[in-house]
Structures are given as structure tokens and as C-alpha cells.
Amino acid sequence: ETSLIFNTYLPPHDELYQIAVRDFAAAIERESAGSLKVVIPDASLAPSDRQYEMVRDGIADMALVSSGGVPQLVALNRIADLPMNSPSARAASIALWETYNTYFLPFDEFKGVKVLSTSVLPGRQILSLRRTDVQEVGDMSGVKLWSPPGALSETVRLLGAVPVNSEFTDLQEYVTKGTVDGMVMAAGSASSARVLDYVTSVTEVPGGLGSLSFAVFISGERWNELDADQQAAVLRAAEGLPERTGAAADAAERELDPVMAKIPTHKLEGAALAGFEARLEARIDDWKTRAAAKGLQNPDEVLAFYRDVLARETRDSLD
């Protein structure tokens, strides 16, 4: 019997934890018929921004890391973090996984580890507070928006607004005291930070202003030590994992529909949407430049492939 340590920094109520960690661990044990035992520690063995290092150090064997958490390595997977690229968590998770396997795998961005699944969160939207009301890109000017550091803050700046970063624990304080005029996040995150009640209007960009993507991975050393049966068992357990995590994240988001239905929502379209798109183009160009620098031959083709999968999956889910 081989024992694998699967570390997580996510709280137990998080869907990503439930599907991509807890259930996945159980599936591995089941598929391997007990030859693999997966141990999930009670608390994270390393800070959330050191998950990759933790696995390379041999502290844990498996973990989950956000693409933004390993900026020194990962540029290609951030295709899923781009504006308008996550219409639903399910579609985006599948699109990233297929794009990863088709185009990114040879670049070996996740050095020293084997990626078993990818997942993407629902697209982040603009949740406005009090008198703030964003109907076109001009309304963004000078608006203070809480956003996670990194790509989304960059996007907020590009739209003429002021990104405000803080610890998640400070968010509620910022919202109730009027330190910020709004947030860039999904309804689910707003709900778990207990700030959804304060939202007065929502501005929806189709596919979101951007999102956060994750990779579930296993240490390369550990992977090579597994025998063929064990490897096959892990891969069987991982089959369809992007879809399952994405669907769970969407379902959690839909649970908030009754709440969201009461909040005035501007679904951007026509000229208003074009105004946003014109500004957001720079984010996409930035990704293309980085991808090209990595040696990706035709970033446009990859982007088209990714969006084709999105289109296919969103069409399927409507049926």
C-alpha cells in the first residue's frame, strides 16, 4: 500500500475542495482497490502561495495551485484567467483542460509535477455598492474596486478604476465602511465574505472580467514511483474531474440566483459591451505576447481553440 499526502488550503465548505480534493482522493482509493491511500491533513502544510514549492520539497505529494500562484512558471494556463473566457466554470474548466493537453503540455510549464486536472472559477463580475452604478466603461473612472492582486487588479486599472487589494478577512470591513465602491468577484465569493447583502447593482460582462484557474497536480517523483496499475487508477479517478469541479462551482453560484434576482443587473451588450471589449483587448494581447515569448507558435489559434470548446460546452449545457 502506497500512501499519498494530498494537501489543501481550502476550507471544507468550498466546492473546489469537496470535488477536486475530498472526492478525488476517495476516487483514487476506490480505483486503486486500496493499493493507494490518500491522506488529507487537517490543515494546510504550507501557505497558499507555496503549494508548488511544498510538493517539490516533498512535504506533500499532491496539491492544488492557482495559476497566479506560480508566476515564475505558468503563463499559458492563464488563458482561462483572461476577460470573457469563463462564461461558466464548467465550460471554462473543460476548455482549459483540453487546451492544456492539446497545446500546453509539451512546454512543461509545471516543472517537476504532473498536472491531473484543471479547473476554472465562474467569471468575476462587477458588484457595485451604494450609489455606484456601472452601465458603460466611462462609469468605471475613479471607482474603487476591491479585487484580488495580480491579473484582475491589472484589468480593473485598465478600465480606469482603482484596484484596492486586501486580505479577504478585511473585505467586509471595507465594504460596510465605504472604503470601496464595489468589488470584482463572483456572487459566491461575495456571499462567503458576507458582503453580498450590500451589493446594490451588478454589471455583467459575458464570460466575466476575468477568472481564477487552478491545477491539481502530483509530484513528478512520486508519480514515477507508482506502478503502472496505480498510475492508471489515478488517471481513471481524474477522468472528467475538470467538468465535475466546474459544474459544482456553477451549482453553488446558481444557489444564489434567488438573491441575485433581486439585485438590478446590467447585462452588457451592444455599444456598452464594445466599450469594455476595446479596453480589455490589451489584456488578451498581453497574454499572447507572453505565450509567444514562451515559444507558443500561434497564440491566436490556441485562443480560437479554447473559445470553440467554450462555445461547444455552453451550447451543450443549454440543450
Binding site: Y52, E53, G68, G69, P71, Q72, L73, P149, G150
Partner: peptide
């Protein structure tokens, strides 16, 4: 030495 080997960057300023 480990951080050097993994090329770890800070979150904000990278």
C-alpha cells in the same frame, strides 16, 4: 536555496 531553485516570486511585485 530552495526558493532560488524554484524561482519563487512574491505575489504583488513578482
Amino acid at each position: 536555496a530552495r526558493l532560488e531553485r524554484f524561482g519563487t516570486l512574491s505575489v504583488f511585485f513578482e
